[in-house]
Write a protein that binds this DNA or RNA. Structure first.
Lengths: 337, 337
DNA sequence: GCCGATCTTGTTATCGCTAACAATTACCGT
DNA sequence: ACGGTAATTGTTAGCGATAACAAGATCGGC
């Protein structure tokens, strides 16, 4: 054993051991067709013996491509983004890509642009941006052309490749479900209106109400937190005519449930509530929450597929995929009093 | 404007424009001392004009160092890991490092080893592994020496550098708080016992009980889910002598709350409950949950600091940092009866 | 005004890999 | 057996940066 910190073996070391040229080693590594089986085995053996692993930096340098994809998301523990990130990494790993995360504190233009810059510095092969608000989307305008890009939850009007959850359909399903239970109308607590998610849910909610000829109550806006749901709930709780509420997400719904509970309004007996997201805990709210479940795995998979298509084929056209969510029925909905 | 997809400018392009050699550009980039101010400015201007950005792959190739650190965590939307990941990326970005995530579906040895391998392929400068169970820790045994490594929540008995939350102290605080409220003893629903987190919390709980001369009730083990908390709660709810429960985490506590609610046992009037984690929603449980809050930001910062120390100074000794959690008092604890 | 020390800049080699081309060997039909 | 094509392997030239050394410019002291 040599004492000095033997640098990790390079291709030429493998080549020497296998008695071939380094180019042949390269060919084996990249599964080129024209290598004799016997040679291939010899090289493989040498690779194993030395514990050789190719140097990605060198490869990236010469090919101009990295096997890295970047993902930009808000540094939040919001359930959606967190799920998305996890699903993404999983899918990317299967495709042989590593994922570099760039989380941002806020979704304003500078933060997003900064995170994008950092990724471009890394020479990522492609970029996924979770851009749920206009300012985030705007930051992508001055992206250098030629960088494969997929946005998640971005502006439906924008031209680049996009994957979204069908917010409108989800909200419509939730609202119609409440209407079908016999409620005369449905109130809605939305997320911040500059979020496309929120806008879509509002649109679906309003559409369902109008189609059913139901009155459209005033919209209550909040942020996505349980706290804001609680605040909204304290208002709604003192309005006896409110019998059904569609919350912008499950956390808001949790806040709502507590507000109703404190004011002695029983859910679902007095008021029905539907959420959005189906966080793992939703089934254990009091009462278990009926909610809309977006398929984050499907979103991630679709996003990655579109990105890889762009990476491998420069001419891939902009594309748009919309993932339909499903309504999960639990115990927070009942006919009105 | 040139039509062809002008490859991004390299150092020599900057050099030509500034009328210097590429080496001088390199010196400017790396803040070498001996560059005339005037030259420095000229180079800076050329860099800006061309929108030049250094090629990290080339730099990594020649220096043998990447500016990438890898983080291995379970692909879960558990609050702890998700928070940790976000905090980490934030801290790393500030230090000029990018973070590559490797999430694993399960924490068994193969999965972890695979994720570590993928990172080593990327030639990461250092590695952070969230290794809350023995199998994850074991996977790190055959890590090649010389790779800077920090474990989070790993085996306290292990020799490598480690950052953990002080589970024992947190659990002790929770238990003592319940005892102080007047409860004769405290039941505990733990996480899976092969998790160090769970083991530490059990130890703290048991220790506090013994120190107070209180009876130690049988331990109930569960996984970390709300569902398992609910199941445990259904048992506890029918035992009138149970007046205080310390849950392994907030999700379990949520399940508990619902189980008690269904059985007509009021919290905190009939039973007091304390959780662990302080998820953002904990304040909106019914009732608001008293819980133990670990400082994930501090964990991430400490972990990164230790990692960077190893990266810059090969001789950095193994280290261990324990972050003390704090008890957050809300409405789920009251005197018995 | 000259010499050595210091500051500033340039030249060359190199990291580990793939691409392009060149060279060798194997295989085929006639 | 022979020429020609196909299959296999080797050689050389970079990719874009840093490191090491060389060279030219500048400066102070005498």
């Amino acid at each position: 054993m040599d004492v000095k910190a033997a640098r990790s073996p390079a291709m030429t070391d493998v080549a020497r051991l296998a008695g071939v040229s380094h180019q042949t080693v390269s060919r084996v590594l990249n599964d080129h067709p024209n290598v004799r089986e016997q040679t291939r085995l010899r090289v493989r053996a040498a690779i194993a013996e030395l514990g050789y692993r190719p140097n990605r930096a060198a490869r990236a340098l010469v090919t101009g491509r990295s096997q890295l994809i970047g993902i930009v998301a808000q540094n939040s523990t919001l359930y959606g983004p967190a799920s998305l990130l996890a699903a993404f990494e999983q899918a990317a790993a299967e495709a042989g890509f590593a994922v570099s995360v760039g989380s941002v504190g806020r979704l304003d233009r500078e933060s997003i642009a900064g995170a994008v810059e950092r990724h471009l510095d890394q020479r990522v092969a492609g970029l996924v941006v979770i851009a749920p608000v206009k300012s985030a989307d705007d930051a992508l305008e001055d992206m250098p052309a030629g960088v494969p890009l997929v946005t998640i939850d971005g502006d439906p009007q924008r031209s680049h490749t996009l994957v979204t959850v069908d917010q409108v359909a989800g909200a419509r399903a939730a609202t119609e479900h409440l209407l079908a239970a016999g409620h005369r109308t449905v109130w809605h607590i939305s997320g911040p209106v500059d979020w496309y998610d929120a806008a879509g849910r509002i649109e679906g909610w309003r559409g369902a109400l109008q189609d059913a000829g139901a009155e459209v109550p005033p919209l209550m806006t909040a942020d996505w937190s349980a706290s804001s749901g609680f605040d909204a709930g304290r208002m709604l709780a003192r309005m006896p005519e409110v019998t059904a509420v569609f919350a912008g997400n499950d956390h808001q719904a949790l806040g709502l449930l507590r507000a109703f509970s404190e004011h002695g309004r029983r859910v679902p007996h007095d008021v029905s509530v539907v959420g959005f997201d189906d966080v793992p805990e939703a089934a254990f709210f009091i009462p278990p929450l009926t909610t809309v479940r977006p398929d984050f795995d499907a979103v991630a998979q679709a996003g990655l597929d579109l990105l890889l298509a762009q990476i491998t084929d420069e001419a891939a056209p902009p594309n748009r995929i919309v993932i339909a969510p499903t309504l999960v029925q639990r115990a927070s909905v009942a006919p009105p009093g």
